[in-house]
Design a protein around this nucleic acid. Structure first.
Lengths: 218, 218
DNA sequence: GTCTATAGGTCGATAGAC
DNA sequence: GTCTATCGACCTATAGAC
């Protein structure tokens, strides 16, 4: 079976190809000409589907956000929902780390990012957290997740034992971190997230749980 | 008194001007020609002081890192030292948010970044944390700080009430977040950091504090 | 140590033919 | 809806004069 004669451009195809290009070569490599080449067309053709380059980037960023699961806020207690959401959020971002600096500008006018913020904030307020506290909690978790997806901690140390031996005595083993990249990065995320939630649960018990017993979800 | 005849280029002057340029206009605006123009010289002159553009960027990134204070690890208990370091780290990064994506690649071969990692990791191990745990704690805090400096949470929501009213019912007040940018962003950081440290202290008491009573610092 | 000149590219976006 | 042609920029880095 031959290929379809011409893979007509669609917004979805453009977004998928742009995502793959950014994943493979970074935000700097993403240009309209380069993206068009990957799609087998010329640069100007993209402008029949998107008005500007930034509009394509917004679509890429929101496609990442649609993969984040916030369903826990409708069915589970706030702490379990936060845990599930944070892991899902991290999975979505680490799958496309090069777009994280763009995404971290905030939800702006992107629908999926706004829907995620709405679900998280709404879920926390419904659980009894004061509005200002709910905002802080959502922001703190975004900080943690975005930071963890922005760059691998383990791969940040070059694999050169001699670099560390002379001047950084405690980092003697740092050249081996890259060998264990996934367990280091995920272990750090798990430790931090668990500690964060442990601290939040303590505050909840101290301030919210004792005043009103927490309205049931839904 | 007239200006000095020609503000001769030095590495320090180049780095300071590059930092100001990146702060004001972002990483994209940072080019050798643009930087040279700010310095009153032509592009190629920079190559008498740095071999490549990336070498300048590394110098900018490390200049940010030298401002981070890790002295607490030499004088205070591990939890107080972590708290001081995290705030100092955050102050240094939020002063130059546009360089954070570059910095988040890790310490690589940058001396100040390596010295910071050495002090933090060494301090935690000396306090009795197992080496793997110390790595995770340092990484988790870097995630949190870098994420908080990468972009303001409060300024991520556009100031347009009508955007939220229709489809994001819980975000009805989100257009007002930008008015309180500093208190939202710092409050979220304070809440998250305190919760994180609370959780870490609980783990320390459970696993380290009971087994060996923690060697004194130094 | 700064300069001019230059190599050898890159970019976003538009106009108008087909 | 894709194409060619084009505008008017921009980029890192080197060679060699002064």
């Amino acid at each position: 079976m031959p290929r379809p004669r011409q893979p007509r451009l669609t917004r979805q195809l453009i977004v998928e190809t742009a995502t793959a290009l950014i994943d493979a070569e970074g935000l700097q490599a993403f240009s309209t000409r380069r993206l068009a080449a990957e799609l087998g067309v010329r640069g100007p053709s993209l402008y029949n589907h998107f008005a500007t380059k930034d509009e394509i980037l917004d679509a890429v960023a929101d496609a990442v956000a649609v993969a984040v699961d916030t369903s826990g806020f409708a069915s589970r207690d706030w702490a379990a929902a936060l845990l599930d959401w944070a892991w899902s959020y991290r999975r979505a971002l680490t799958a496309h780390p090069n777009i994280v600096p763009y995404l971290a500008q905030g939800p702006r006018r992107r629908p999926a990012a706004l829907a995620m913020a709405d679900a998280v904030y709404g879920g926390l307020v419904r659980a009894g957290w004061p509005p200002a506290r709910a905002t802080h909690i959502g922001a703190a978790l975004r900080y943690f997740v975005a930071g963890s997806a922005l760059g691998s901690f383990a791969r940040g140390f070059v694999e050169d034992p001699e670099l560390y031996a002379a001047h950084y005595p405690h980092l003697r083993q740092a050249h081996r971190l890259a060998e264990h990249q996934q367990s280091v990065d995920e272990g750090a995320f798990a430790l931090g997230l668990d500690a964060l939630l442990y601290g939040l649960a303590a505050e909840y018990a101290r301030t919210v749980g004792t005043v009103e017993s927490g309205r049931p979800n839904g």
